[in-house]
């Protein structure tokens, strides 16, 4: 039992760690990775806590997470395409407000 909660807490940790990186890291690739890590955190929490229904694990969260993984890869592909488009017009693959200009 307690291990399930341990995994759920790791999920929380991944979510907030990803959030921190999303906010402070300037490079878009890092931001995209950060969102993926946040997603993994949420998924971990969902599935881990589904294990509390012993003896049979609750599979509904598992189905939700499979859905979520597919959404995540779709979003990542879009984000990477946008990032490449952006870095063609401005170097560094960063959003304007993160650029170390003298503004």
């Amino acid at each position: 039992m307690s291990m399930l909660f341990f995994y759920a807490l790791i999920g929380v940790g991944l979510f907030t760690l990803g959030l921190l990186a999303l906010v402070v890291q300037p490079h878009l690739l890092q931001k995209i990775l950060a969102l993926n890590v946040m997603g993994s955190g949420v998924f971990l929490l969902l599935v881990a806590l589904g294990g509390r229904s012993q003896p049979v694990v609750d599979v509904v969260p598992q189905a939700m997470v499979i859905t979520g993984i597919v959404v995540a890869v779709s979003a990542t592909a879009m984000a990477l395409t946008l990032m490449l488009n952006l870095s063609r017009s401005s170097p560094g693959a960063q959003l304007p407000e993160d650029q170390s200009a003298d503004s």
């Binding site: 909660f5 807490l9 929380v12 589904g50 509390r52 229904s53």
Partner: peptide, 22 residues
């Protein structure tokens, strides 16, 4: 992190979810 962890730990340690229905 602290707040969310507190919320997670407040969940019941046993919960059937929808496993019976499934």
């Amino acid at each position: 992190t602290g707040g969310l962890a507190y919320a997670v730990l407040s969940l019941p340690s046993h919960s059937p979810g929808l496993s019976d229905a499934v």
